[in-house]
Design a protein around this nucleic acid. Structure first.
Lengths: 202, 202, 202, 202
DNA sequence: AGGTAAACGAGACGGTACGTCTCGTCTTCCT
DNA sequence: AGGAAGACGAGACGTACCGTCTCGTTTACCT
């Protein structure tokens, strides 16, 4: 029994223009550089229109990410049947993403946004972090089923370690590739001898 | 051949008062609630005196952390000779720290500060991140020497994974304890059977 | 074809509150003691609202003068038919005004304001100086028509001399009354024998 | 009983450098643009040295004027024996000075400085205004003795009118030449027919 | 067709904090 | 003791955004 609303309906084109503006401004200036005024100006919208539908800057940016207007550093994770090969592919893609300063910019924006109200943070987690996280966990579980990863280890913990390493070294501006390769090697001991990662780093 | 400086020397007491004020305001109001004006007012200093020595709010707070005016979530890492036991201790301390919202607040401040100019970021890394990182790496290396961790894995990668997991789950406001326990178990397979972590999480 | 303005219209009550605040602060503290911050605070307005409509402190004060919120040292000039009598009345009123330090304060503010951008200066001239100037010139012309002032002299020059004398001696903090009386006597020779001004000053 | 002062004597070269710096800065930036810091920097002096010997910015600038480091708009007043001719010469020189924007700048600086403490103002009057004023008065008195100006008029009032007109029209940025010419014509009626001023201005 | 109601753009509003500027004082070393 | 250097507390400056508040206009649904 949805109350039949009267009055002018919400403008879809304005909604899109606002998300688009938020996305491009975040990419260009980083999260802190984005302002509601600038979003409104670029979108050709009134500020009130933004405040009518979103509670804060962080929610606008979060929605822009969720709606896909902001390209996200979500490395692909194939499933060739060989977990080691697949994780190396993910590692390579992640390292590439981390070397793209615009993507890192967006990550920092999301970290900052996630520092905001609990409600905004969980919305971001649900739509952004969790999909990647569950993709990893599921692939790891299939690897365990195939005997490529010990069934005794926690797939979630491995996913945490992979994503955490990615996040830590990206934020700290440290080289990423060897760290992830080394981690995969440490977790998949039987993979010995196939990659650069087998040589302990100095 | 230090250039003999002339003019009134920098006031040490003012420097300390500013760091103290920055620390107490961060604790009370959180990072976003801190303003340069408030720091200056509480420290009994002029704003210019702050801007003369620090480039931004984040650097003042970072210096307060470095100088120890703000307690940092730096979990202790003992060396009992048993790497598994020591890492579990570190894990427990880390989880406790992550459940202290004030400490998490400070971490977020540091992440923000690390998003600034390269120079500021590396200063932070040198003084804050690296000590913890190297502590972990060294302990892990001693564990490898004692045969408690495979000599084939990269100690750095393991440290990255531990710190990364801590950072990721703290920022995402997810429970931390099991993730770290599970990771330690995964990395020290011979430790099987001694902890709660052996039961795969659901 | 007035451009149809959009957006919230300018608040008249705020405009008045700002002018009122500027006027009272000038009277209380003198021109130099007035600050934009104080005007905003007393008017209950934001600073930006002041800067949106006025280019500088001096223009706010000038507008307060123009709008009549600040009493101006504008001596009355009657028209009794006898130019000598009328100018003596103006002289007396001017001398009284010049002995009021608050009024002199305002004059100094206006001189300072007139030192600013050409546009501001001419606005002040149009609204403040010229009315007084033209009043004098017109009265002098009627005196010439009545044969009380030589038709050969320039009425404008006489007005310049009167106002100039007033300005000079007020700024130099010199006694004003005798100077103006003496000037009137010098310009209206037929008025001989009626005033104190006939006795040369020592 | 002159106390024989001990210690290092005041540096004459520094005193001169400060006055020189004050003069050049006033010319370049106008009175409001001058700062004690800038004077100190340009003079290669410490700020304390300035504050030790002068009470305020206005006194430094005033001293610079008095000491002749700032060229003043002091028109020459010859004495050919013909008062009309001499005043016309003065008028011409004054008009030329008023068209020199740097000189007008200095005049405005002095007006502002004269708005300061009574003590500073009278010092300025004594050294700057009065010499010019007395020059005029004396020349006018000699004109009266020669029968070229009515002995009944007040020489001081005429001097006030001349200087006042000059000041007024210079500050109001109005053309000066005709105003002064017209005034001279009005005061020296016997001068009829010799100058452009006889034609009433429109 | 006219009326009602909500969303729209624009932009002014009261505020807060910013980072800069200048003031007049203070502190150090040097001459 | 005077002087150059320059840090200090204080506080005003003019700007940038915030989130709110009118305006006039537009676009739907409901008589």
């Amino acid at each position: 029994m949805t109350a039949t609303r009267t009055g002018r309906p919400r403008s879809e084109s304005t909604r899109l223009a606002i998300l688009e503006a938020a996305a491009s401004l975040t990419t260009e200036l980083g999260y802190d550089g984005v302002t509601i005024d600038a979003i409104a100006a670029r979108a050709g919208a009134g500020k009130q229109t933004i405040y009518r539908w979103w509670s804060s800057k962080s929610m606008v940016v979060a929605d822009a990410v969720i709606a896909g207007h902001l390209r996200l550093p979500a490395p692909e994770l194939p499933d060739t049947g060989d977990l080691g090969v697949d994780l190396k592919a993910w590692t390579t893609a992640a390292a590439a993403a981390a070397s793209d300063s615009q993507l890192v910019q967006v990550v920092r924006a999301l970290v900052t946004a996630a520092s905001g109200p609990e409600q905004d943070a969980s919305r971001l987690y649900e739509h952004i972090t969790r999909p990647t996280y569950e993709l990893l966990v599921n692939r790891l579980r299939r690897g365990q089923d195939a005997g490529q990863l010990s069934a005794a280890v926690s797939a979630e913990s491995v996913a945490d370690a992979l994503i955490g390493t990615l996040l830590f070294r990206a934020l700290a501006r440290l080289p990423l590739s060897e760290a992830l390769t080394g981690l995969v090697d440490a977790l998949l001991p039987q993979d010995r001898g196939t990659g650069a990662g087998t040589t302990p780093r100095t």
